[in-house]
Design a protein around this nucleic acid. Structure first.
Lengths: 139, 139
DNA sequence: GCTTGCTCCTCTAGTCGCTAGAGGATGTAG
DNA sequence: CTACATCCTCTAGCGACTAGAGGAGCAAGC
């Protein structure tokens, strides 16, 4: 049942070959069965699992969180409040990041808007980065 | 004129001591003068420069961008269009990150809203992560 | 059968921006 | 004089990969 090479798995899932090997090395993927010539062989289950991992990574879940989610799938009877908790914590984290980036955008945009009049010595961007108390000094 | 220890510089600027040494090692800060007993000594210029670096890092500028900004400050006559270009590129990057995180937030929020009814085997979160074509299989 | 070129293997080291720790020297206060 | 704080250098670790060396195997064309 295991006929897929690592290269085929890679193009099926969009995960690079070294990354697949890396996932194996950290235990996110089980060690693959090997062919007679020691090449890794994969089956459909591996494709699904790797797609799950990739998708979760794209959504910004950390490897540790993915490990937990995968562990949950091993226990069909367990209440999925656990998965919910992981996702909810992740959502809070996302909101936090967005808030910080938005504040940052304001600041950088303001910096650019107040731009300069020709030379570095008058540049508002560098002044803005130097901080409120340190204008007109050398860096 | 150079009387400040690394510890004092650290508490003045909020940059941790190992980080200051690290900045020196990568050339963001010049190698500090040393006391008779080989301790680093800093003056007000270092404090300003380090504050600039810290502020720019907090704003998410990468070390390489900061290096460029600092290089600009060395040439007072140069048009600050360069600084503007760096900041503008950074702003575009921030906007891109915000857009991606917002899309992500939608997806994770939807995932959570469609939550489960008791057990893992029915959990929408895990299904959502498995992707559109891979529901109801083992991972 | 042989060569060419692709894929695969393992292993090590590099990326970024720090952070932590070992092990030792020096400075300061009581 | 004894603590203890602060400093020094050096090495290794973090997360999540990525890149490269050096070698083996495999499939296709001649």
């Amino acid at each position: 049942m295991q006929t897929t090479s690592i290269g085929a798995l890679s193009s099926e899932t969009g995960v690079k070959i070294p990354t697949i090997r890396y996932y194996e090395s950290i235990g996110l993927l089980d060690a693959a069965n090997r062919s007679a010539s020691n090449r890794r062989l994969y089956g459909p289950d591996d494709t699904r699992r790797l797609r799950f991992i990739r998708h979760a990574r794209e959504l910004g879940f950390e490897v540790e969180a993915i490990r937990q989610l995968l562990a949950l799938t091993g226990d069909q009877a367990r209440p999925c409040a656990d998965a919910d908790a992981i996702a909810t914590a992740h959502l809070a984290d996302i909101n936090h990041k967005i808030a910080r980036l938005s504040a940052l955008r304001e600041e950088v945009a303001r910096m650019i808007a107040e731009d300069c009049h020709g030379t570095i010595s008058e540049c508002r961007i560098l002044e803005a980065l130097a901080g409120p108390c340190d204008r007109h000094h050398t860096l």
